[in-house]
Design a protein around this nucleic acid. Sequence first.
DNA 1: CACGGGATCGTCT
DNA 2: GACGATCCCGTGT
Length: 214
Amino acid sequence: MDITAIKDSKQDSRILPLSFYVRNDVVQISRELLGKFLVTHINGKITAGMIVETEAYRASDDKACHAYNMRRTARTEVMFAEGGQAYIYLCYGIHHLFNVVTGPKNNAQAVLIRAVEAIDNLPLMMQRRGREKAGPQLTAGPGVLSKALGITTSLSGSSLLSSTGNIWIEDRDIHFQPKEIISSPRVGIDYAEECKDWPWRFRVKHSKWTSKSK
DNA sequence: CACGGGATCGTCT
DNA sequence: GACGATCCCGTGT
């Protein structure tokens, strides 16, 4: 076994397994994703950030969810798959928003990753963002974190379960206590009627790397 | 710091 | 044909 193989097996051991994603509770998974590390491997380059803000969406009863009312289209199809895949869509014609598909097959649920703390390979993230300074503006916000990590809609449907892919999520032993997590209503979904105030947005309390609220 | 508007295009009606 | 799970920059305070 060479050094590369040792490194890879160590890395694989911290990748979140299928069992993490297939649980039928997207709200709980949204909380647990705080402190996990979103990693991309694109054109041979690794970048990674620690997740500090998430939002839960589910088709069964949530009018803010793209798949609400079993709306099953080419775009939302991946949300109906088994958990552990990426759902990435284009927002406002400009921003590529990254979601984690969760739950069992045909039970459409997803977690939107709204902000990460930039950790690995700051220079490349700065270059992708066209910024000269490191800091929260690099990755605080769902559109900008995708840009920093090189995530585009072409990765929608990708598996998150292996380091042989382009994108995955790792556990690096960071854990937050319940009182370190703030829950509040989700951003930008005022159209969702009685669902718009559900407290399904989760943030790490002391992080400076969360996106701005209304 | 708050607010306002423009960018830009895939998706669904 | 309208609009969106956003971002950035400009203006004014």
